[in-house]
Amino acid sequence: MITHLSLAAVLAVENLNPQAPPGSNGLLLLGNYLKWLAYLVGLLGIVYGGAKFAVEKWNGGVCESPKIVAASLIGGAVVAASGALMTQIINAAGS
C-alpha cells in the first residue's frame, strides 16, 4: 500500500510542467549579462597571467603567474558549467 502511494506520488511529479514566473525576463537578461562579464573577466585573467609570465621570464623574477592562469582556467570551467546548467533550467522552464 505504501509502495503504491509513493510510486503514484513519483509519477505525479514527473507530469509537472515548470514555467518561469511573471516578470522573470529582466532577471534572465541580468543573468546573461553577468555570464558574459564573467567570461570576459576570465579571458582577461588568462591574458594578464600570460603577460605577467612573459615579464617574469624576461626579468628572472619569482614565477607567480602560473597560479593566476590556473585560477582563471578553473574559474572559467566553473562559469561554463554554471552557464550550461542555467541554459538547461531556462530551456526546461520555457517548454
Rank of each mutant, 00 (worst) to 15 (best):
G75W: 03
G31S: 13
I46H: 01
A20N: 04
I2L: 12
Y39Q: 04
N32I: 07
V13L: 15
A80R: 00
V69I: 14
L11V: 07
S95N: 09
V13H: 08
I46P: 06
L16C: 14
G60I: 09
A77D: 01
L7E: 14
K52S: 14
I68V: 14
K35R: 08
K57S: 05
K57P: 00
I74P: 00
L73Y: 03
V41G: 00
N17R: 15
L73P: 01
K35P: 00
L5F: 09
K52Y: 12
P22L: 13
V69L: 06
L85S: 08
A70I: 11
P21V: 14
F53R: 13
A77F: 10
V13N: 11
A77I: 12
N32D: 08
A8W: 09
G76R: 00
W36M: 05
G83S: 06
A8T: 12
G45S: 05
N25K: 09
N25I: 14
Q19V: 15
M1A: 05
H4R: 04
V79T: 11
A84Q: 06
A51P: 02
S6W: 03
L30R: 10
A93Q: 09
V69Q: 07
A9Y: 04
G61V: 09
L29G: 07
A12I: 05
L7D: 15
A54S: 15
A80H: 04
A12T: 05
G26E: 14
A81H: 02
V69S: 03
V78S: 05
A71N: 03
G60Q: 07
E14W: 09
T3F: 03
G76D: 06
A80V: 10
P18M: 15
A54W: 11
G26L: 08
S24G: 00
L29Y: 12
L30Q: 15
N32W: 12
L5H: 04
G45V: 06
S24K: 07
P18A: 08
V41R: 04
G60F: 09
A38D: 01
W58G: 02
L73C: 08
G23R: 05
L73M: 11
N91P: 00
A92Y: 09
V55D: 11
V62Y: 10
N32F: 02
A20I: 13
